[in-house]
């Protein structure tokens, strides 16, 4: 698994120009990461819903925020889903605006109005959606999972409802949560091996920003 980042030119004015520049930067990041994995030029197309279409044998996702784009990809044989997301830091006001929709009652009670946690939760659920939705061929909302901090060694996303027989309520997924100077980066990586079996060492991953 590899990831790559790309910074687009911020000298654009309108929302559509900004989005076009970000998408272009995202495709460059995706092409870089795909080429690193496959050892040959990689073209990542864009589907009708805006989601990337990776060449055969690869899976991954792209995220954009404030002129930065990142991409993550891996071999489909190793990973059944990969999702990445970057977000800017949230102001207290924006965190308050989105908390009623982005967080479950448990999360609101546990994390209060902390803008950093709210950004991490929002981003982690975006990453989960990107990794899991194509795998199960089903869309789901932000209340389908909640970030839990309990006796586990690391915060994890717990599904709150049965999405499929395999992806049922209570299933735990440990996301990567990285607070950075400019915002947050999260990723959800779903390995392609049976549950309860330790991954082989070749599944070691690398992140390059």
């Amino acid at each position: 698994m590899q990831s790559a980042g790309w910074k687009s030119n911020n000298d654009v004015e309108t929302g559509r120009e900004r989005r076009a520049a970000q998408h272009k930067a995202g495709r460059i990041a995706a092409a870089k990461v795909g080429a690193r994995l496959s050892g040959k030029p990689c073209n990542v197309a864009r589907g009708m819903d805006g989601a990337p279409i990776w060449p055969n044998g690869l899976r991954g996702s792209i995220s954009h925020c404030n002129g930065r784009s990142v991409a993550i990809a891996g071999h489909a044989g190793n990973w059944c889903g990969l999702g990445i997301d970057i977000e800017q830091h949230l102001s207290v006001e924006v965190a308050k605006d989105i908390a009623p929709v982005a967080l479950t009652p448990y999360e609101r009670a546990h994390f209060k109005g902390d803008p950093l946690w709210i950004a991490l939760i929002f981003s982690a659920k975006e990453s989960l959606f990107k990794a899991l939705s194509p795998l199960i061929d089903k869309r789901f909302d932000f209340d389908a999972a909640e970030l839990c901090v309990d006796a586990h060694p690391a915060p994890y996303l717990r599904l709150t409802r049965d999405l499929t027989p395999d992806w049922c309520a209570g299933r735990a997924i440990t996301p990567l949560l990285i607070p950075c100077k400019d915002g947050v980066l999260t990723a959800v990586t779903l390995p392609n091996y049976p549950r309860n079996v330790a991954p082989p060492s070749i599944y070691k991953s690398a992140i390059v920003m």
Binding site: R16, D97, A99, V101, A102, R139, D141
Partner: peptide, 27 residues
């Protein structure tokens, strides 16, 4: 999406509608 809308803005808008008594989910 092609006009520059991203997921955070969709979420903000869902929150704003909720404040106005219109309950729509992000999805």
């Amino acid at each position: 999406i092609f006009y520059g809308l991203d997921s955070l803005r969709v979420m903000k808008f869902a929150g704003e509608l909720k404040e106005r008594g219109i309950i729509v989910s992000f999805e």
